[in-house]
Design a protein around this nucleic acid. Sequence first.
DNA 1: GAGATTAGACAGAGAGACTGACCATCGTCA
DNA 2: TGACGATGGTCAGTCTCTCTGTCTAATCTC
Lengths: 144, 144
Amino acid sequence: MPSGPTVGLLLFLPYRAMEARVLAALAEAGFDDVTLAQARVFQRIGPDGTRLTDLAEQAQVTKQTAGFLVDQLERAGYVRRGPDPADGRARLVRITSRGSAAQAAAAEVVAEVEAEWERHLGSRRMGALRETLLRLREITDPYA
Amino acid sequence: MPSGPTVGLLLFLPYRAMEARVLAALAEAGFDDVTLAQARVFQRIGPDGTRLTDLAEQAQVTKQTAGFLVDQLERAGYVRRGPDPADGRARLVRITSRGSAAQAAAAEVVAEVEAEWERHLGSRRMGALRETLLRLREITDPYA
DNA sequence: GAGATTAGACAGAGAGACTGACCATCGTCA
DNA sequence: TGACGATGGTCAGTCTCTCTGTCTAATCTC
C-alpha cells in the first residue's frame, strides 16, 4: 500500500505549523507566558463566556485539566471566572481585556498564515480545502 | 471577520479523530500499552531503521524526549536499538515483529477511516483533499 | 592530528493530563 | 414538596511527557 503519507499525517503537518506560528507571534507580541495547552483552551472561550465543562468537552480534556489550565490563564490575567446567572453551580470563564488583546494578535497571525497558504495553493484550491474540511467536520467533530 | 472556524482548527479536528480511532483500535487489538506520544514517534520509524536524532527532528521533540519514548517502546517490545553500520556514534531504532504487527493493525484502521471519509466526501473531493494537503506540505513541513 | 560538530545518554525539573473522591446545586418525578 | 439522580466544579495524588543542562564517544574538517 505505497500510498505515501496518510491523510491523517497530512492534516497534522499544516496544523502544527499554524499552531507554532501563532504561539511564536504571541510570544513576540509580549504574550510570552502562554503555553500551547493554555492556548488550546483559551481558543474555545466564547465572547459571552464559557463554562469550564464546555471548555473541557470541546478541548477533549477532563474538567480537572481544563480547570488547571484556566487557573493559569486567570493568574496570568487573560481570563477571569464569574458566576453563571443561569446556573448557580456553574461559573463562566470570560476573557479579560488583556485576553482580548492576545486574541486579536492571534487572529492577525492566523489571517496572515492563511493568506500565505492561499498564495501557495491558489484561491480556488484554498476555498475547496475549507469547504471539504467543513464537510469532514460533520463526521469527525462530536461537538459540531 | 466572521469566517467561521479557522482552517487550522478544521485541520485539527479530523486529525484528532483519526488519531483517537487508531489508538483505540490498537488497544482493542491487544496493543494496549502504547501511548499517543509513543505512537507519534513509532510512526516515523522507517523499514530499515531510523536514527534517534531523525525521529526527534521529524516528531519535533528533543532528542531526550525521543530517547525517553523509544526506551518505553523498547521495553514494551515494539522496537529494538542496534548499531548503525554507517556511523559508530549512532544507533538505529528498528521495528520488531511485534512492532510490525502493531503497525499492520494501525494501517488497517487508517485505511478504514479514510474509506469512511471518502464515502462521506465523495472520491473526487477526497482525492482533491489529498492533493491539496500534499501541496500545503511543501510550505508547512520543514522536513519534507 | 586538533578542534568543532554530531549522536546519544543521564539527571533533574516542570507542565500537563488522568483517576478518584468530594461538595454544592439543579432538575425531575413521585 | 421533597427525595434522589445528574451535573458543574474543586481538591488530592499520580503518571506521562517534555524540556534544559551536562556529559561521553565518535565523526568530520582543516
